[in-house]
Design a protein around this nucleic acid. Sequence first.
DNA 1: CTCGTGACGGGGG
DNA 2: TCCCCCGCCACGA
Length: 119
Amino acid sequence: MLVDEKSYREKVFALVRTIPRGRVMTYGQIAAILGEGYTARTVGYVMHTASADNVPWQRVVNASGGCSTAKFTVPFDLQQKLLEQEGVAFNAKAKCKLDDYLWSPEVAEDDDHPNLFGG
DNA sequence: CTCGTGACGGGGG
DNA sequence: TCCCCCGCCACGA
């Protein structure tokens, strides 16, 4: 690859772009996969610089399965709404079930879930 | 170069 | 189970 020396941010974005519709990843998981130098904190920082045009930022949630963006970055619960449109269900506590929706690029083929994107 | 910030995560009460 | 505190490291002024 000609551009293996991507920016710190580009690596995060590249990974986020691999998250399929109807699935999510957590900041900590992304940091763990990218490895050295990456922490949930920095991944979160990087994500806030992302553009909706370049990255499906909505598919990144915190370790609790909730939307950290709901606090102030975007109007109210936009992220949750976007995810719900993709088939990700949230409970009354505004958390999605990570056991069902968490995406792992390394075990992508192991998915025994139904086609959430079906539509 | 230095200081403070921030879309996080884990442990204890 | 929820809330608070501390540590983590890239970025911007």
